[in-house]
């Protein structure tokens, strides 16, 4: 399966990409994807502990399952307002 990954702010700067499709094994979780994007873009390791993820526009924990076609946001600590 594949998920669409969107990188924001410092994550985009470090990955040097705005979005990409990432292939994952079936029944992969958000945590599996977290490991995979660090493998693809080792510089993201700097954000590994502070970043959170959204799946289809809702914040998701690392054990949340992913499905083919999901949109995943890589969200560094937020600073709106």
């Amino acid at each position: 399966m594949k998920v669409r990954v969107l990188y924001f702010a410092a994550a985009r700067d470090l990955a040097s990409v705005e979005s990409e499709r990432v292939p994952l094994k079936e029944r992969a979780s958000v945590g599996d994807l977290a490991g995979e994007i660090v493998r693809l873009h080792p510089s993201l390791k700097a954000l590994e502990r502070s970043v959170r993820f959204s799946v289809n526009f809702e914040v998701a924990e690392r054990d949340a399952p992913l499905r083919d076609g999901d949109e995943v946001g890589v969200l560094p600590p937020v600073a709106g307002g």
Binding site: A9, R52, L75, P76, V78, A79
Partner: peptide, 29 residues
């Protein structure tokens, strides 16, 4: 809630020409 739960980020541009992402907090949710 806007500050805590909206996926938004800001980069400060300083008068000395440097710029940096504002250190935020993990998104709530």
């Amino acid at each position: 809630a806007i500050k805590g739960t909206l996926p938004m980020w800001k980069k400060e541009r300083f008068a000395d020409g440097t710029e940096t992402w504002v250190k935020g907090a993990p998104i709530e949710g």
